[in-house]
């Protein structure tokens, strides 16, 4: 029972990590709860994820919001607002 969590661009550099597996538990049922858990690590996690303006979340490659539910095997991605084109 785990999530695969991916970090891209500025977030990957600030957090020093491109990917990790996070074990699911009843307190990690939504995107909002996952973000709370990650902020709880303190330091760059707290700072980088402080404001919703600074990052976006996708679940299984689709844009998600705080209420999006999480389940075993989901791929969650955290990244800055996009700047392609």
């Amino acid at each position: 029972m785990a999530l695969s969590v991916l970090y891209f661009a500025r977030l990957r550099e600030a957090l020093g990590m491109a990917q990790e597996d996070i074990a699911l538990n009843p307190k990690l049922a939504t995107v909002a709860e996952l973000l709370e858990y990650l902020r709880g690590r303190g330091g760059p996690w707290q700072e980088t994820l402080a404001s919703a303006r600074l990052f976006r979340v996708a679940v299984n490659q689709e844009m998600a919001d705080p209420a999006t539910p999480l389940k075993d095997g989901d791929e969650v991605a955290l990244f800055p607002p996009v700047t392609g084109g």
Binding site: F8, A9, R10, A58, M63, A77, F79, P80, P81, V82, T83, G84, G85
Partner: peptide, 23 residues
């Protein structure tokens, strides 16, 4: 919509160093 929805990120190299482009 590509500019606001597609997950691409630009990093620029400038005389002051490299930095990520802000949306």
């Amino acid at each position: 919509f590509l500019k606001t929805q597609a997950p691409f990120w630009k990093k620029e190299q400038t005389p002051a160093g490299a930095h990520w482009v802000e949306a």
